[in-house]
Design a protein around this nucleic acid. Structure first.
Lengths: 153, 153
DNA sequence: GTTGAAACCGGTTGTCT
DNA sequence: AGACAACCGGTTTCAAC
């Protein structure tokens, strides 16, 4: 589905989506045409999902990041479905994963400050249907945070 | 530092970095010039960090995502510093946050499959200096995963 | 902040190997 | 599948309002 050259292109684009096609070609020793074709093909196939702008949290006023472990009262299909649907609507929730282990969901939440977190917690999160328990872990330092999925060996 | 119009631009660019300046202008009722100026200013100020390409994990062969809770043997400044430096080198680690609570770090790890995770766990993670304990939680379903930081109220 | 114009550069397409 | 050339669209810069 993706060969070695595709992976090289993906590695570059994941770091910087603004690289020009010629620049990419220069780095992997290829002319514009095949680079262009490969990118278009991977966009059509959905391997390349989209191009986004990343912002600096610190410059936006040192936002508060919180991880929440959520346990539902019932581990049924409908219960999960309800929660999934509700959580997708909350802009403060940047990530939500259903996990194996001692709780059901792990959420990554971003808010402006503790006051906003309290409001989010009380008024938007804990009121969701089927929740039994929530544990919050506050991020003190962001050591690493990349969008780069390793594609090369 | 950023006004209402800046926030509108950031909201759009976070969703799609390929929007043309005129298209952005049309959506927020502004001409090319000021939109261009504001974006350039926010890039200079570092509010806009970079533009990246996001890939589809499923299309890359259904990668395995694992969250790891890591506890260090000693909670000293040097111990943290050593670990921070080491973890930044591992491409499998997409996120690493130092958190408050019953463990020190929460990691988000991406690997191809369980075999690769085992190798990563044994040969690359558990050998890091100062580690006392690691707990792994496997992601069964990615409910939500966005890079969009909420900037509008 | 708006409008309009001009230069430049990269994406895009077609053709050839 | 890759190289080359020509076209077109958007960015970028400028001037004037």
């Amino acid at each position: 589905m993706v060969d070695r050259i595709d992976r090289q292109i993906l590695a570059l684009l994941q770091e910087d989506a603004q690289l020009t096609i010629q620049e990419i070609g220069k780095r992997i020793n290829l002319s514009k045409t095949p680079v262009h074709e490969r990118i278009k093909r991977m966009e059509r196939d959905g391997i390349i999902e989209k191009h986004v702008t990343l912002l600096n949290k610190k410059k936006l006023g040192n936002l508060l990041v919180v991880f929440c472990q959520v346990t539902l009262a019932k581990q049924t299909r409908d219960s999960f479905f309800e929660f999934d649907r509700a959580i997708a609507q909350l802009p403060e929730v940047m990530e939500c994963n259903r996990v194996s282990g001692t709780f059901d969901y792990l959420l990554k939440v971003v808010v402006r400050d503790m006051e906003n977190y309290n409001a989010f917690y009380q008024e938007r999160l804990s009121v969701l249907p089927g929740i039994l328990h929530i544990s919050s872990f506050f991020v003190m330092a962001e050591v690493k945070n990349t969008t780069v999925i390793p594609v090369e060996e």
